[in-house]
């Protein structure tokens, strides 16, 4: 087994660890992400394609490496996002809850500090987020919303690209890692 493999799959040789953050970080970063999505598109229309709350959810879920934490982080950020939208509460909450859970679960298998992994996971979870939101819109709200696959893929790539520097920025707010059992 090569060093590259060991660096991707932590369970093989790496020791699992969870990043710790100040509570204010968990409060302010999602809030800033939501505010960015709310206000920035008013001035820059293309900024509406950025799903910063999703990237924040993915980041914290990946770094906490705990599904419960990821579930709660995703639920809180999603409900906060819902509270500022015109849609019923729970649409973003459900989707981001699933994203946080799966991201936390995936983080236990992969080296989430690897930029490539972060890029791939960022793209994957964005696509998952959009697809699952589309399903919920049709299933629960009976909205006949179309799903543009190409645009979704492109925007997914964009968000994944934006997520790489954002994750690095957020790594600066990390205090230390805590070894997991």
């Amino acid at each position: 087994m090569s060093e590259y493999t060991e660096s991707i799959i932590p369970g093989v040789s790496r020791r699992k660890s969870a990043s710790r953050y100040r509570p204010a970080v968990f409060l302010l970063v999602p809030l800033l992400a939501i505010l960015f999505q709310v206000y920035v598109p008013r001035f820059i229309e293309s900024a509406a394609n950025l799903e910063l709350p999703l990237l924040v959810t993915v980041y914290f879920s990946l770094m906490r490496r705990q599904p419960i934490a990821g579930t709660l982080i995703g639920a809180v950020i999603g409900l906060a996002q819902d509270s500022l939208s015109h849609l019923p509460l729970g649409m973003f909450g459900i989707v981001k809850t699933l994203v946080g859970y799966f991201a936390a679960s995936v983080s236990q298998r992969f080296d989430v500090e690897n930029p490539a992994i972060r890029l791939i996971l960022g793209f994957f979870f964005f696509f998952f987020h959009q697809f699952f939101y589309w399903i919920l819109s049709r299933a629960l709200l009976s909205q006949q919303v179309g799903f543009d696959l190409v645009q979704t893929l492109i925007v997914g790539v964009l968000n994944a690209a934006v997520g790489l520097p954002l994750f690095v920025l957020l790594d600066k707010l990390r205090q230390d890692d805590v070894a997991l059992a």
Binding site: T71, P88, G90, I94, A104
Partner: peptide
Amino acid sequence: SLTVLVVTILAQLVLLAYQ
């Protein structure tokens, strides 16, 4: 973790369904 996930999803589904 799975239980927490299910409970959270269900709670939000209820919240969604209420609206």
